[in-house]
Design a binder for these strands. Structure first.
Lengths: 224, 224
DNA sequence: CGTGGTTTTGATAATAGTCAACACGAGTGG
DNA sequence: CCACTCGTGTTGACTATTATCAAAACCACG
């Protein structure tokens, strides 16, 4: 999951398995904190997230980290390049995953429909990453955080009355490393949004959007 | 072309057409300043750059721009998402392009080898973009500019004696929008590198790398 | 030679980062 | 059941990096 301006109406779309014919019994279950794969591992499987949340990260030698994406239900993770993984992937919320053989993507043998679906997922990934470039390269801290909350609200927010409740299973540092900020800046920005009445912070991992339109404005850079 | 730490030995690799059997006569030639496609256009063709340089850009409503990539010989541009282009693409240096039907990527009918090759290119694209995330999100101005020069030297630099000469057909503003900086910062950073003797600026569009190892150090963040 | 666009340089401002202290909360063990 | 502790988050003070605005220099081109 990348952060862009919410565009398509994806709000709480049901998690449709890529190919419904796949038997349920080869689902994979993973606990919080466990790793799905590491950078450099050979790729044998791709995974579609069915429940839970994953975190994909890349590290620089000196410890600087970039969170590449969060894997939410519906997302496909594990696209290979040259046959290898180029990120680490671990579990933020206990997850259920539907594995697909790498060969289903790369040679498509046996299941043309699955092959097509995985290819389309890869192409969507490219497009989503392009949007994310814009955010990393050109948006201010407030715009980044507001965009992040907008997209999460759109994808996994719970309507509660007029408001929308978002669960943030990741730590502030994860959000920071995803948006190209520091923990402190993410924290300060949330405080600022709270003081303006745009959001309410129910607890560290739960945020309520009080003024969705204001948040959207902020995500787009309407200076105010 | 994205900017990462030069890793594979790609230096001046010959431009190998994806499938050598493709007849030369359906090459496309484009002049400087012409557009190959626009954001929102339906995708009918992908293109492999054979000669010349392309520029892929995305715009925000308020005019902020992100250069997504530069298309150098060997690169494939035009991957669709949902059937449409998600960037503009125009020509920085007169270019020769090898077109491939979108169906060659998406349905693969008729030419499995081409289908595979285009898919692998898409997967490499995803990996390269992940590297670029790290740069946009986590690197300083000097690291960004040094990385940019390193990759260009690696891919298209001309050895001239001990030094390496790089042609920069794009304007400073393009480099800035690619790296998430301003024109002024790019210019100042180049000046700084010149004053340190790491590079020499032959003219606005030609840079000579005097201390490749120092440049590489700087690109990795060895603080100095 | 002008002329217009680009680049460089300078002065200043703003944003986000750094470092440090404190607050909060979950879990532990007395 | 209550401190205690550790990891995380928040806040504050200050700094640094990069952006902004403006002017001068440079270059390409007619």
């Amino acid at each position: 999951m990348y952060v862009t301006i919410p565009s398509e109406n994806t709000r709480n779309r049901p998690v449709t398995p890529i190919v419904s014919a796949v038997a349920k019994n080869n689902e994979t279950h993973l606990k919080v904190g466990s790793y799905l794969f590491f950078e450099g591992d050979p790729v044998d499987w791709l995974f579609q997230v069915k429940t839970g949340v994953l975190r994909l990260t890349r590290l620089l030698e000196d410890g600087r980290r970039q969170v590449i994406a969060f894997g939410y239900p519906g997302d496909i993770v594990g696209f290979p390049s040259g046959g290898y993984h180029h990120t680490d992937c671990d579990v933020l919320v206990d997850a259920t995953l539907q594995p697909y053989r790498r060969t289903a993507l790369e040679s498509g043998d046996g299941d043309p429909e699955l092959h097509r679906a995985l290819l389309q997922a890869a192409l969507r990934e490219i497009s989503a990453m392009q949007d994310h470039f814009m955010m990393l390269g050109r948006k201010s801290a407030v715009e980044k955080v507001a965009s992040f909350l907008c997209v999460l609200a759109d994808r996994v927010g719970d309507a509660c009355g007029v408001d929308c409740k978002i669960d943030l299973p990741m730590r502030r540092g994860d959000i920071a490393d995803f948006l190209g900020l520091t923990t402190e800046t993410v924290s300060r920005t949330l405080t600022q949004l709270r003081k303006r009445g745009v959001i309410a912070v129910e607890n560290i991992h739960t945020i309520i959007i009080r003024k969705p339109s204001a948040l959207l404005e902020l995500s787009l850079g309407s200076d105010d």
